[in-house]
Computed example of a mutant assay.
Amino acid sequence: MAGTNCTQVTEFSLKGFTEDPVTQVTLFLMFLLIYLATILGNLGMIALIKMSPQLHSPMYYFLGNLAFVDLCSSTVITPKMLSDFIAEKKGVAYAGCMAQVFIFDLFGMTECFLLATMAYDRYMAICHPLVYPLVMSPKCCFQLVTGSYLLGLTNGMGQTISMSNLSFCSSSVIDLFFCDISPLISLSTSDTTLSHVILRTSASLFGVSSSLVVLVSYAAIISAILSIRSAEGKHKAFSTCASHLTTVSIFYGTSLFMYLKPSSESSGGGDKWAAVFYTVVTPMLNPLIYSLRNKEVKEALRRLTKRK
């Protein structure tokens, strides 16, 4: 427990990636380009889905929500990271740090369940096409998306409340480029048992369960694809599944690595670059891998451009 003369930290300092000025400029330009691509890709996908009647289907309804979540989660992290590259003082107020934890955990867990929902949608479309319109009705799609946001909200509130009950009296330097749960727990001078339990439970119950839905769904999809007689049909279906599983693997692999590993096994720079993948890179890749390789999206874009 913290001592009675503990002075609560009012501001945290983010250590970031490096102190070398040249490297900081290089990273600033690289992450700025990634963030601009993230904004254009996700906003463009949302607008295209909204303005194209042929994309008003469950699959693209989920994709539109995924684009919105990616845009929000990236915006919570990247602008602050970019400003720190050019700022002398890389600090964040205690309240701002807690807000970042809440919003990022909200959208991060929402994305987990949206990815699971999208995998289930593809499973129903490929393995049970006759009942697909009945099962994936507009009401069901709305409930699945709303449930994803509510589970994300539950996770964000739980993590933030556990963080707000901790005391930070000694070091205020976070060895990362944003306020994340694991490094904050490591900095606390109070009993962190409950915070560890909440973190592990959330990652295991929500993260692992949603990833299992993805794996089981795609296992069934691949099994169905193998029964296709046409070699061209198999190649097309496998290509689509491989693209989806690439993004899913990057997101789940890096995030579960960060939140399920013991806090004593910190790998410093390895943790930072793992965090880069699921906070910065994945939101940029999703519009490309999930949508821009899709012929229906390309056709909708062509029609919209021609009409304009």
Rank of each mutant, 00 (worst) to 15 (best):
T4W: 08
K15D: 13
K15Q: 12
F17M: 02
D20V: 04
P21W: 02
Q24V: 10
F31G: 05
L33T: 11
A37F: 08
T38Q: 04
A47P: 11
A47T: 15
K50H: 12
K50F: 14
M51F: 11
M51W: 14
S52D: 00
Y60R: 07
Y61S: 15
G64S: 11
F68S: 15
C72D: 10
C72G: 14
S73C: 14
I77V: 08
I77C: 06
T78C: 07
I86T: 03
E88C: 01
K89F: 05
K89L: 01
K90H: 09
G96S: 00
G96Q: 00
C97Y: 00
M98W: 01
M98T: 08
A99N: 08
A99T: 09
F107C: 13
F113W: 10
M118L: 13
Y120C: 04
A125R: 04
C127H: 00
H128R: 10
H128C: 09
V135T: 03
M136P: 13
S137P: 10
P138N: 07
P138D: 02
F142H: 03
Q143E: 06
L144A: 07
V145S: 09
T146Q: 15
Y149Q: 07
L151A: 14
T154Q: 09
T160M: 00
S162I: 07
L166A: 03
L166R: 03
S167Y: 12
F168M: 05
S170I: 04
S172K: 13
I174Y: 01
L176Q: 09
F178G: 04
C179T: 05
C179R: 01
D180Y: 01
I181S: 05
S182A: 15
L184F: 11
S186A: 10
T193Y: 02
L194K: 11
V197S: 15
I198Q: 10
L199N: 12
S202R: 09
S204Q: 12
F206H: 03
S209M: 10
S210E: 05
L215S: 06
L215T: 07
L215A: 14
Y218K: 01
I225W: 02
L226N: 04
S230K: 07
A231F: 14
H235C: 15
H235M: 14
A237I: 09
S239E: 04
H244C: 15
H244Q: 12
T246P: 09
T247W: 12
V248D: 11
I250R: 01
F251E: 03
Y252P: 05
L256C: 06
L260R: 02
S264A: 11
E265R: 15
S266K: 13
S266L: 14
A274H: 14
V276G: 12
V281E: 02
V281Q: 02
M284A: 10
N286T: 13
P287A: 10
Y290I: 06
S291V: 10
L292K: 06
L301F: 01
R302S: 08
R302D: 03
L304M: 11
K306L: 12
